[in-house]
Design a protein around this nucleic acid. Sequence first.
RNA 1: GCGCCCGUAGCUCAGCUGGACAGAGCAGCGGCCUUCUAAGCCGCUGGUCGGGGGUUCGAGUCCCUCCGGGCGCGCCA
Length: 598
Amino acid sequence: MVRDRVIELVRAALALGAAQGRWPTAEVAFSVEAPRDPKHGDFALNAAMVLAKPAGQPPRQVAAAIVEAIRAVDAAGEVTSLEIAGPGFINLRLAPDLWYRSLERAVAQGEAYGRTDTGHGKKVIVEYVSANPTGPMHVGHGRNAVTGDGVQRLLRWAGFDVTREYYVNDYGAQVQTLARSVHLRYQEAHGRTVAFPPKAYPGEYVREIADGLKAEFGARWLDAPEGEWLALFRDRAVQHVLGLIRGDLAAIDIQFDRWSSEKALYESGTVERFMADLERKDLVYVGKLPPPKSKKGAPAPPPQPEEEGVTVDDDLTLFRSSAFGDEVDRPVKKSDGTPTYFCADIAYHWEKRQRAELLIDVLGADHGGYVPRLEAALQALGYARTDLHVVLIQMVNLTRGGEAVKMGKRAGNVVWLREVVDEVGRDATRFIFFTRRSDAPLDFDVELLKRQTLDNPVFYVQYGHARLHAIFRKAAEGSVPLPAFSLADARTLTTPEELDLIRRIAAFPDVLAGAALAFEPHRVAFYLQETIGAFHSWYTQGKRTGERVLGSDPARTRARLFLCRALVQVLANGLAVLGVSAPERMESPETGDIGAEA
RNA sequence: GCGCCCGUAGCUCAGCUGGACAGAGCAGCGGCCUUCUAAGCCGCUGGUCGGGGGUUCGAGUCCCUCCGGGCGCGCCA
């Protein structure tokens, strides 16, 4: 907010200079950022370095002219000092009152503080989770879900018009495998002994579905040909599993606006219409897939397609994705004429793009190779490559006290998301996923997250929030009212720690907007940890110096309390962006109660 | 063999879309509780940003190339 004001001033100054013929254009990409070293002022401006070349003058000379122009434009005297430093930075300091007023703004805007119009209401669909409905969610799905939810919340805070969407793969081979697994359990439920092939889904939930079908239909499908029961079993299984997934999502506070079904894409004719569109645009052709590139001795992948009747050399329908940046053309119809998964998926993106201007896909890193063909598809359809942004989610290494928990897809040793949430709680589960960039692998240590010590970042942050409320409670005990904003009071906040906190509070909307534009919710978590660290530091220093929040000087007491009000708002809102609760009190794990230690 | 992601302190990681001397948390050492939560704070120790080139006024950040990890790689989803 304060920064926005600076940007306005700089824009005006650059326009003035351009009008005066000092440089050819005012349309340059300059940056205004808070320098790491507070000695360098409130903000550092790089415009002189950027303009040096177009202006044909050395940076420091341009800087001098920019300084002059800023002074000319700054009628109100909001900029109190301008210094040219280093290679041509302009360091500027602002009137302290501007900073103090940002506290007022934070409190006045309350739960809305941090919201911006960065997105200008742009319609965006965030697709995340989209786990195949073949079983409950595991921890990896959890990371995808939480990250996607963080991105989605961020975009809302930044003024985008967001639809949260889950793509249900309820059509292909995997759900058929699930249906067959259910049928095997169904046979077991009738007392038969069946061989359970390694491809089948072994989970306990499969048995539950089978039991349900037995209760409803008895032995009716026991010896019926597969064609008679497959669709029914599939649909029942998918419905059941989706129920499980909804429950898993609810446990980590995630909801969706829309569940898009792959099956429905076929049934509604969308895939057909899409294929027709592709043919009209000459984006598909019938041909053979080139053999995979593999050099001498390289382990050529064994011939995969074991689908009945499909041989490697048959003709099939290919999409001209290689004309749009993909390595090779990708099949959209198999040689038996049925559409591929890719076909339905680009049809889905095609359809989504018509509902929104920007598409976000949150995908597992193992789908990284899939991204180029999706981008190619969108481009082929006449959209910009940037209309789709893919957030890749790396692996989660589940550990317990530092020791890896083995998770095989086959054996029954999958650790479900729900088990982990039950053990460590919703807040810790969510927060830990924001402590790492999404494209870096993450260790999820169950023991650590349970421990409730400062190893566990979520407690550090929540503790800070609770501590602020403890101050408010203390104030209430002493009948000290929570103060309204007073500039005169605020001006008593002058220590480096206090000014640092004010700057952080003022930067909060910028942090959210920046994180939203980068689709990186982890930045919010890091911001919160740093800001709370700054608060703890200030707080503890006050204990040492005797200058505590509630002190003897009424004006300073009011000012500090107001600072705390702004701070608590930022923390609460930041936690809300991450979907983590902001408790007003926390009990000590050792004493079980506050202040019970002697 | 090809493609994508990653390589920053002993460990785990940030680094704000290229900025000014590279940061934090753990771990190690040493300090701080009569008074609003010590689940906290302060200090010290710790780095050729994997190596080498290049672009730029300026590179951890962009390009090329090696090295070392992860993931993926013919009509599976």
